[in-house]
Design a protein around this nucleic acid. Structure first.
Lengths: 199, 199
DNA sequence: AGAATAGAGAACAAAACGAGAACATGCAAG
DNA sequence: CTTGCATGTTCTCGTTTTGTTCTCTATTCT
Protein backbone atom coordinates (compact mmCIF):
# COMPACT_ATOMS: atom_id res chain seq x y z
CA UNK A 1 0.00 0.00 0.00
CA UNK A 2 1.10 3.54 -0.61
CA UNK A 3 2.11 6.10 1.95
CA UNK A 4 0.37 9.48 1.72
CA UNK A 5 3.39 11.08 0.07
CA UNK A 6 3.75 8.26 -2.41
CA UNK A 7 0.10 8.61 -3.22
CA UNK A 8 0.40 12.33 -3.77
CA UNK A 9 3.42 11.78 -5.94
CA UNK A 10 1.64 9.25 -8.12
CA UNK A 11 -1.43 11.45 -8.35
CA UNK A 12 0.63 14.40 -9.44
CA UNK A 13 2.49 12.41 -12.06
CA UNK A 14 -0.81 11.14 -13.46
CA UNK A 15 -2.27 14.60 -13.55
CA UNK A 16 0.81 16.16 -15.12
CA UNK A 17 0.86 13.43 -17.73
CA UNK A 18 -2.78 13.97 -18.61
CA UNK A 19 -2.37 17.71 -18.68
CA UNK A 20 0.90 18.10 -20.55
CA UNK A 21 1.46 14.81 -22.28
CA UNK A 22 4.89 14.35 -20.78
CA UNK A 23 6.16 13.45 -17.37
CA UNK A 24 7.21 16.01 -14.77
CA UNK A 25 10.80 16.39 -13.60
CA UNK A 26 11.79 15.51 -10.07
CA UNK A 27 12.00 19.21 -9.35
CA UNK A 28 8.44 19.76 -10.47
CA UNK A 29 7.17 16.82 -8.47
CA UNK A 30 8.93 18.17 -5.44
CA UNK A 31 7.35 21.58 -5.85
CA UNK A 32 3.94 19.94 -6.13
CA UNK A 33 4.18 17.74 -3.07
CA UNK A 34 6.11 20.25 -0.99
CA UNK A 35 9.57 18.73 -0.94
CA UNK A 36 12.57 20.84 -1.81
CA UNK A 37 15.08 18.09 -2.27
CA UNK A 38 15.32 16.28 -5.56
CA UNK A 39 17.01 13.46 -3.71
CA UNK A 40 13.97 12.84 -1.55
CA UNK A 41 11.66 12.94 -4.53
CA UNK A 42 13.94 10.50 -6.21
CA UNK A 43 13.42 8.13 -3.34
CA UNK A 44 9.64 8.30 -3.71
CA UNK A 45 9.77 7.67 -7.40
CA UNK A 46 12.13 4.76 -6.88
CA UNK A 47 9.78 3.23 -4.37
CA UNK A 48 6.77 3.67 -6.62
CA UNK A 49 8.80 1.92 -9.25
CA UNK A 50 9.62 -0.93 -6.90
CA UNK A 51 5.96 -1.27 -6.01
CA UNK A 52 5.09 -1.55 -9.67
CA UNK A 53 3.22 1.70 -10.21
CA UNK A 54 5.79 3.31 -12.44
CA UNK A 55 8.29 2.35 -15.02
CA UNK A 56 11.36 4.40 -15.63
CA UNK A 57 14.29 4.50 -18.00
CA UNK A 58 17.54 5.09 -16.14
CA UNK A 59 18.88 8.57 -16.61
CA UNK A 60 16.29 9.55 -19.15
CA UNK A 61 14.93 12.99 -18.51
CA UNK A 62 11.25 12.76 -17.72
CA UNK A 63 11.30 9.11 -18.67
CA UNK A 64 8.42 8.12 -16.46
CA UNK A 65 5.56 5.94 -17.43
CA UNK A 66 2.53 5.15 -15.32
CA UNK A 67 1.56 1.52 -15.38
CA UNK A 68 -1.95 0.21 -15.19
CA UNK A 69 -3.25 0.63 -11.73
CA UNK A 70 -6.16 -1.43 -10.53
CA UNK A 71 -9.49 -0.24 -11.85
CA UNK A 72 -8.81 1.46 -15.13
CA UNK A 73 -11.88 2.18 -17.21
CA UNK A 74 -12.80 -0.37 -19.79
CA UNK A 75 -14.06 2.17 -22.29
CA UNK A 76 -17.54 0.95 -22.85
CA UNK A 77 -21.10 1.74 -21.90
CA UNK A 78 -24.13 -0.46 -21.52
CA UNK A 79 -26.29 0.08 -24.58
CA UNK A 80 -29.83 -0.26 -23.35
CA UNK A 81 -31.69 0.08 -26.59
CA UNK A 82 -33.51 2.44 -28.89
CA UNK A 83 -35.58 5.32 -27.73
CA UNK A 84 -38.31 6.67 -29.99
CA UNK A 85 -40.78 9.30 -28.93
CA UNK A 86 -43.88 7.71 -27.55
CA UNK A 87 -42.75 4.11 -27.33
CA UNK A 88 -41.16 1.99 -24.68
CA UNK A 89 -37.42 1.64 -24.93
CA UNK A 90 -36.80 -1.20 -27.27
CA UNK A 91 -33.81 -3.45 -26.91
CA UNK A 92 -31.51 -3.88 -29.87
CA UNK A 93 -31.12 -7.59 -30.54
CA UNK A 94 -27.56 -8.78 -30.19
CA UNK A 95 -26.29 -5.36 -29.14
CA UNK A 96 -26.01 -4.59 -25.49
CA UNK A 97 -22.66 -2.88 -25.20
CA UNK A 98 -21.33 0.22 -26.84
CA UNK A 99 -17.58 0.15 -27.16
CA UNK A 100 -16.29 3.66 -27.60
CA UNK A 101 -13.08 2.56 -29.23
CA UNK A 102 -14.87 0.49 -31.85
CA UNK A 103 -17.28 3.30 -32.39
CA UNK A 104 -14.88 6.15 -32.94
CA UNK A 105 -11.27 5.09 -32.98
CA UNK A 106 -9.28 3.89 -35.92
CA UNK A 107 -6.04 4.51 -37.76
CA UNK A 108 -5.13 7.99 -38.97
CA UNK A 109 -7.85 9.65 -37.00
CA UNK A 110 -7.72 12.81 -35.00
CA UNK A 111 -10.14 15.13 -33.28
CA UNK A 112 -10.98 18.76 -33.95
CA UNK A 113 -13.11 21.08 -31.95
CA UNK A 114 -15.64 22.90 -34.08
CA UNK A 115 -16.12 26.62 -33.75
CA UNK A 116 -19.12 28.23 -35.34
CA UNK A 117 -22.52 27.26 -36.58
CA UNK A 118 -21.80 26.53 -40.20
CA UNK A 119 -22.75 22.85 -39.93
CA UNK A 120 -25.59 23.24 -37.49
CA UNK A 121 -28.19 21.60 -39.69
CA UNK A 122 -26.01 18.52 -39.93
CA UNK A 123 -26.19 18.27 -36.17
CA UNK A 124 -22.70 19.64 -35.61
CA UNK A 125 -22.96 22.47 -33.16
CA UNK A 126 -20.55 25.12 -31.97
CA UNK A 127 -18.22 23.45 -29.48
CA UNK A 128 -18.77 19.92 -30.71
CA UNK A 129 -15.82 17.68 -31.40
CA UNK A 130 -15.52 15.86 -34.69
CA UNK A 131 -13.42 12.83 -35.43
CA UNK A 132 -11.60 13.14 -38.73
CA UNK A 133 -9.94 10.44 -40.74
CA UNK A 134 -7.00 11.83 -42.64
CA UNK A 135 -7.34 11.24 -46.39
CA UNK A 136 -7.12 13.34 -49.51
CA UNK A 137 -10.14 11.99 -51.30
CA UNK A 138 -13.79 12.18 -50.46
CA UNK A 139 -17.10 11.31 -51.96
CA UNK A 140 -19.94 13.63 -52.76
CA UNK A 141 -21.88 14.30 -49.61
CA UNK A 142 -19.02 13.68 -47.22
CA UNK A 143 -18.31 16.28 -44.59
CA UNK A 144 -14.70 17.21 -45.11
CA UNK A 145 -11.93 19.30 -43.65
CA UNK A 146 -10.94 21.34 -46.66
CA UNK A 147 -8.12 23.77 -47.16
CA UNK A 148 -8.73 26.65 -49.54
CA UNK A 149 -5.72 28.15 -51.27
CA UNK A 150 -3.54 26.36 -48.77
CA UNK A 151 -4.67 28.86 -46.18
CA UNK A 152 -8.14 28.68 -44.80
CA UNK A 153 -9.32 25.51 -43.17
CA UNK A 154 -13.03 24.86 -43.14
CA UNK A 155 -15.55 22.16 -42.39
CA UNK A 156 -18.13 21.72 -45.11
CA UNK A 157 -20.08 19.19 -47.07
CA UNK A 158 -18.48 18.33 -50.39
CA UNK A 159 -20.09 18.25 -53.79
CA UNK A 160 -18.39 18.01 -57.11
CA UNK A 161 -19.87 20.18 -59.81
CA UNK A 162 -19.05 19.67 -63.42
CA UNK A 163 -15.95 21.16 -65.02
CA UNK A 164 -13.45 20.61 -62.24
CA UNK A 165 -15.37 22.74 -59.83
CA UNK A 166 -15.96 21.89 -56.21
CA UNK A 167 -18.79 23.12 -54.09
CA UNK A 168 -18.41 23.42 -50.33
CA UNK A 169 -21.83 23.47 -48.77
CA UNK A 170 -22.45 24.67 -45.24
CA UNK A 171 -25.32 23.13 -43.33
CA UNK A 172 -26.79 26.43 -42.36
CA UNK A 173 -29.52 28.16 -44.33
CA UNK A 174 -28.06 31.54 -43.43
CA UNK A 175 -24.82 30.77 -45.18
CA UNK A 176 -24.37 30.10 -48.84
CA UNK A 177 -22.16 27.51 -50.41
CA UNK A 178 -18.94 28.41 -52.15
CA UNK A 179 -17.73 27.08 -55.44
CA UNK A 180 -14.02 26.81 -56.14
CA UNK A 181 -11.94 25.37 -58.90
CA UNK A 182 -10.59 22.00 -57.89
CA UNK A 183 -6.99 23.24 -57.74
CA UNK A 184 -7.77 25.68 -54.98
CA UNK A 185 -9.25 23.07 -52.67
CA UNK A 186 -7.29 20.43 -50.80
CA UNK A 187 -9.14 17.79 -48.86
CA UNK A 188 -7.42 17.06 -45.59
CA UNK A 189 -9.80 14.56 -44.11
CA UNK A 190 -13.31 13.27 -43.80
CA UNK A 191 -15.49 13.51 -40.74
CA UNK A 192 -16.22 9.99 -39.53
CA UNK A 193 -17.61 10.71 -36.12
CA UNK A 194 -18.79 13.38 -33.78
CA UNK A 195 -19.20 13.78 -30.08
CA UNK A 196 -20.52 16.23 -27.59
CA UNK A 197 -20.48 16.57 -23.87
CA UNK A 198 -23.19 18.49 -22.08
CA UNK A 199 -22.05 20.63 -19.16
CA UNK B 1 8.74 9.38 -22.66
CA UNK B 2 8.90 12.72 -24.38
CA UNK B 3 10.55 15.86 -23.16
CA UNK B 4 8.51 19.06 -23.36
CA UNK B 5 10.24 20.19 -26.52
CA UNK B 6 9.86 16.82 -28.19
CA UNK B 7 6.22 16.92 -27.30
CA UNK B 8 5.74 20.38 -28.77
CA UNK B 9 7.56 19.29 -31.89
CA UNK B 10 5.32 16.29 -32.36
CA UNK B 11 2.20 18.31 -31.73
CA UNK B 12 3.20 20.88 -34.28
CA UNK B 13 4.00 18.26 -36.90
CA UNK B 14 0.64 16.59 -36.34
CA UNK B 15 -1.23 19.84 -36.66
CA UNK B 16 0.72 20.94 -39.71
CA UNK B 17 0.10 17.61 -41.33
CA UNK B 18 -3.61 17.76 -40.63
CA UNK B 19 -3.88 21.27 -41.89
CA UNK B 20 -1.65 21.25 -44.93
CA UNK B 21 -1.37 17.62 -45.81
CA UNK B 22 2.42 17.74 -45.91
CA UNK B 23 5.05 17.88 -43.24
CA UNK B 24 6.68 21.11 -42.10
CA UNK B 25 10.34 21.84 -42.80
CA UNK B 26 12.85 21.85 -39.98
CA UNK B 27 12.91 25.62 -40.26
CA UNK B 28 9.15 25.86 -39.81
CA UNK B 29 9.22 23.52 -36.85
CA UNK B 30 11.96 25.61 -35.33
CA UNK B 31 9.97 28.78 -35.78
CA UNK B 32 6.96 27.14 -34.16
CA UNK B 33 8.74 25.84 -31.09
CA UNK B 34 11.11 28.76 -30.76
CA UNK B 35 14.40 27.27 -31.87
CA UNK B 36 16.59 29.03 -34.40
CA UNK B 37 18.91 26.18 -35.22
CA UNK B 38 17.88 23.61 -37.79
CA UNK B 39 20.43 21.28 -36.29
CA UNK B 40 18.66 21.30 -32.96
CA UNK B 41 15.31 20.69 -34.60
CA UNK B 42 16.84 17.88 -36.55
CA UNK B 43 17.88 16.30 -33.31
CA UNK B 44 14.33 16.44 -32.00
CA UNK B 45 12.95 14.87 -35.11
CA UNK B 46 15.60 12.18 -35.01
CA UNK B 47 14.79 11.40 -31.44
CA UNK B 48 11.09 11.25 -32.11
CA UNK B 49 11.93 8.84 -34.87
CA UNK B 50 14.03 6.72 -32.54
CA UNK B 51 11.24 6.67 -30.02
CA UNK B 52 8.84 5.44 -32.64
CA UNK B 53 6.64 8.49 -33.07
CA UNK B 54 7.73 9.42 -36.57
CA UNK B 55 8.94 7.79 -39.70
CA UNK B 56 11.16 9.62 -42.10
CA UNK B 57 12.59 9.09 -45.55
CA UNK B 58 16.29 10.00 -45.67
CA UNK B 59 16.96 13.26 -47.40
CA UNK B 60 13.42 13.66 -48.58
CA UNK B 61 12.27 17.18 -48.03
CA UNK B 62 9.30 17.22 -45.68
CA UNK B 63 9.25 13.44 -45.78
CA UNK B 64 7.78 12.96 -42.34
CA UNK B 65 5.04 10.60 -41.34
CA UNK B 66 3.42 10.42 -37.95
CA UNK B 67 3.00 6.97 -36.53
CA UNK B 68 0.66 5.86 -33.81
CA UNK B 69 2.88 6.75 -30.95
CA UNK B 70 3.50 4.26 -28.17
CA UNK B 71 2.70 7.06 -25.79
CA UNK B 72 -0.84 7.54 -26.96
CA UNK B 73 -2.91 5.89 -24.30
CA UNK B 74 -5.58 3.52 -25.50
CA UNK B 75 -8.98 5.05 -25.94
CA UNK B 76 -7.81 8.47 -26.95
CA UNK B 77 -7.37 10.60 -30.02
CA UNK B 78 -4.91 13.39 -30.74
CA UNK B 79 -6.83 16.62 -30.40
CA UNK B 80 -5.24 18.92 -32.92
CA UNK B 81 -7.13 22.10 -32.30
CA UNK B 82 -10.10 24.19 -33.19
CA UNK B 83 -11.44 24.58 -36.68
CA UNK B 84 -13.42 27.66 -37.53
CA UNK B 85 -14.57 28.38 -41.05
CA UNK B 86 -11.97 30.37 -42.91
CA UNK B 87 -9.12 30.27 -40.46
CA UNK B 88 -6.09 28.09 -39.93
CA UNK B 89 -6.51 25.36 -37.38
CA UNK B 90 -5.71 26.85 -34.04
CA UNK B 91 -4.10 24.87 -31.25
CA UNK B 92 -5.88 24.61 -27.94
CA UNK B 93 -3.40 25.49 -25.20
CA UNK B 94 -2.92 22.74 -22.69
CA UNK B 95 -5.20 20.32 -24.47
CA UNK B 96 -3.78 18.00 -27.03
CA UNK B 97 -5.38 14.69 -26.26
CA UNK B 98 -8.99 13.73 -26.21
CA UNK B 99 -9.64 10.90 -23.83
CA UNK B 100 -12.91 9.25 -24.72
CA UNK B 101 -13.36 7.79 -21.28
CA UNK B 102 -12.95 11.16 -19.58
CA UNK B 103 -15.18 12.75 -22.15
CA UNK B 104 -18.14 10.42 -22.00
CA UNK B 105 -17.83 7.78 -19.34
CA UNK B 106 -18.83 8.07 -15.74
CA UNK B 107 -20.79 6.30 -13.07
CA UNK B 108 -24.40 5.34 -13.70
CA UNK B 109 -24.26 6.06 -17.39
CA UNK B 110 -25.69 4.14 -20.26
CA UNK B 111 -26.25 4.65 -23.95
CA UNK B 112 -29.41 4.86 -26.01
CA UNK B 113 -29.82 4.96 -29.72
CA UNK B 114 -32.16 7.72 -30.82
CA UNK B 115 -34.92 7.04 -33.30
CA UNK B 116 -36.71 9.96 -34.86
CA UNK B 117 -36.20 13.63 -35.43
CA UNK B 118 -37.77 15.07 -32.36
CA UNK B 119 -34.52 16.59 -31.07
CA UNK B 120 -33.06 17.55 -34.39
CA UNK B 121 -32.66 21.23 -33.57
CA UNK B 122 -30.59 20.31 -30.54
CA UNK B 123 -28.20 18.52 -32.83
CA UNK B 124 -29.47 15.05 -31.99
CA UNK B 125 -30.31 13.29 -35.20
CA UNK B 126 -32.06 10.08 -36.06
CA UNK B 127 -29.63 7.26 -35.42
CA UNK B 128 -27.41 9.18 -33.02
CA UNK B 129 -26.43 7.67 -29.72
CA UNK B 130 -26.90 9.61 -26.53
CA UNK B 131 -25.15 9.01 -23.24
CA UNK B 132 -27.54 9.19 -20.32
CA UNK B 133 -26.77 9.51 -16.67
CA UNK B 134 -29.34 7.71 -14.61
CA UNK B 135 -31.06 10.03 -12.16
CA UNK B 136 -34.61 10.92 -11.22
CA UNK B 137 -34.21 14.65 -11.00
CA UNK B 138 -33.35 17.20 -13.63
CA UNK B 139 -33.12 20.92 -14.05
CA UNK B 140 -35.08 23.10 -16.40
CA UNK B 141 -33.51 22.95 -19.82
CA UNK B 142 -31.97 19.51 -19.42
CA UNK B 143 -32.58 16.98 -22.10
CA UNK B 144 -34.10 14.03 -20.30
CA UNK B 145 -35.25 10.50 -20.84
CA UNK B 146 -38.80 10.68 -19.52
CA UNK B 147 -41.33 7.97 -19.00
CA UNK B 148 -44.98 8.96 -19.40
CA UNK B 149 -47.58 6.96 -17.48
CA UNK B 150 -44.90 4.35 -16.91
CA UNK B 151 -45.24 3.37 -20.53
CA UNK B 152 -43.95 5.66 -23.20
CA UNK B 153 -40.33 6.65 -23.17
CA UNK B 154 -39.32 9.85 -24.84
CA UNK B 155 -36.36 12.15 -25.21
CA UNK B 156 -37.28 15.78 -24.65
CA UNK B 157 -36.16 19.00 -23.11
CA UNK B 158 -37.62 19.55 -19.68
CA UNK B 159 -39.40 22.59 -18.34
CA UNK B 160 -41.38 22.91 -15.19
CA UNK B 161 -44.54 24.93 -15.47
CA UNK B 162 -46.36 26.21 -12.46
CA UNK B 163 -48.84 24.07 -10.56
CA UNK B 164 -47.08 20.72 -10.68
CA UNK B 165 -47.14 20.60 -14.43
CA UNK B 166 -44.24 19.49 -16.56
CA UNK B 167 -43.62 20.47 -20.14
CA UNK B 168 -41.67 18.20 -22.46
CA UNK B 169 -40.36 20.22 -25.35
CA UNK B 170 -39.15 18.66 -28.58
CA UNK B 171 -36.40 20.42 -30.50
CA UNK B 172 -38.29 20.34 -33.75
CA UNK B 173 -40.47 23.15 -34.96
CA UNK B 174 -42.87 20.71 -36.58
CA UNK B 175 -43.71 19.09 -33.28
CA UNK B 176 -45.40 20.73 -30.34
CA UNK B 177 -44.54 20.35 -26.73
CA UNK B 178 -46.68 18.32 -24.37
CA UNK B 179 -47.70 19.28 -20.87
CA UNK B 180 -48.34 16.63 -18.25
CA UNK B 181 -49.10 16.64 -14.58
CA UNK B 182 -45.99 15.81 -12.60
CA UNK B 183 -47.34 12.47 -11.40
CA UNK B 184 -47.54 11.11 -14.91
CA UNK B 185 -43.91 11.84 -15.74
CA UNK B 186 -40.95 9.90 -14.40
CA UNK B 187 -37.45 11.10 -15.21
CA UNK B 188 -35.17 8.22 -16.00
CA UNK B 189 -32.01 10.11 -16.74
CA UNK B 190 -30.35 13.17 -18.19
CA UNK B 191 -28.48 13.33 -21.47
CA UNK B 192 -24.84 14.13 -20.70
CA UNK B 193 -23.26 13.28 -23.99
CA UNK B 194 -23.88 12.36 -27.54
CA UNK B 195 -22.03 10.61 -30.30
CA UNK B 196 -22.42 9.76 -33.92
CA UNK B 197 -20.57 7.64 -36.39
CA UNK B 198 -20.73 8.40 -40.06
CA UNK B 199 -20.97 5.40 -42.35
C1' DA C 1 19.12 5.32 23.93
C1' DG C 2 18.80 3.09 19.49
C1' DA C 3 16.58 2.18 15.05
C1' DA C 4 13.92 3.76 11.31
C1' DT C 5 12.35 7.40 8.39
C1' DA C 6 12.10 11.81 6.12
C1' DG C 7 13.91 16.10 4.24
C1' DA C 8 17.81 19.09 2.90
C1' DG C 9 21.36 19.81 0.16
C1' DA C 10 26.07 18.92 -1.96
C1' DA C 11 28.56 16.74 -5.61
C1' DC C 12 28.74 14.42 -9.73
C1' DA C 13 27.10 12.35 -14.17
C1' DA C 14 24.18 12.07 -17.87
C1' DA C 15 20.95 14.04 -20.83
C1' DA C 16 18.89 17.80 -23.03
C1' DC C 17 19.41 22.13 -25.08
C1' DG C 18 20.41 26.02 -28.40
C1' DA C 19 23.53 27.92 -31.67
C1' DG C 20 25.78 27.72 -35.64
C1' DA C 21 29.22 26.05 -39.10
C1' DA C 22 30.02 23.03 -42.88
C1' DC C 23 28.50 19.90 -46.20
C1' DA C 24 25.12 17.09 -48.96
C1' DT C 25 21.05 16.69 -51.70
C1' DG C 26 17.12 17.66 -54.56
C1' DC C 27 14.58 20.78 -57.30
C1' DA C 28 13.52 24.38 -60.25
C1' DA C 29 14.74 28.59 -62.74
C1' DG C 30 17.69 30.46 -66.01
C1' DC D 1 23.63 22.03 -68.16
C1' DT D 2 24.64 25.20 -64.51
C1' DT D 3 23.38 27.80 -60.75
C1' DG D 4 21.01 29.06 -56.76
C1' DC D 5 18.02 28.08 -53.12
C1' DA D 6 15.63 25.49 -49.83
C1' DT D 7 16.21 21.70 -47.22
C1' DG D 8 18.23 17.89 -44.69
C1' DT D 9 22.44 16.03 -42.31
C1' DT D 10 26.33 15.93 -39.40
C1' DC D 11 29.32 18.12 -36.52
C1' DT D 12 31.20 20.85 -32.47
C1' DC D 13 30.80 23.98 -28.55
C1' DG D 14 29.15 25.70 -24.28
C1' DT D 15 25.23 25.93 -21.17
C1' DT D 16 21.36 24.33 -18.61
C1' DT D 17 18.41 20.91 -16.85
C1' DT D 18 17.74 16.60 -14.89
C1' DG D 19 18.76 12.26 -12.58
C1' DT D 20 21.69 9.80 -9.19
C1' DT D 21 24.13 9.09 -5.14
C1' DC D 22 25.80 10.74 -1.07
C1' DT D 23 26.00 12.61 3.71
C1' DC D 24 24.00 15.17 7.39
C1' DT D 25 20.33 16.47 10.42
C1' DA D 26 15.78 16.35 12.47
C1' DT D 27 11.94 13.65 13.81
C1' DT D 28 9.37 9.69 15.15
C1' DC D 29 8.73 5.31 17.12
C1' DT D 30 9.93 1.49 20.07
Amino acid sequence: MLTPQEHRTLQFIRRHLAEHGYAPSLEEIGAAIGVRSRGSVHRYVSRLQDKGYLRRAPHGARALEVLDGPGDPAGSLPLLGRIAAGRPIEAIPGQDTLNLADFLLGPDRYALQVVGDSMIEAGILDGDTVVVRQQDRAEDGDIVVALIDGQEATLKRLRRCGGGMIELIPANAELSSMVYSAERVTIQGVVVGQLRSYR
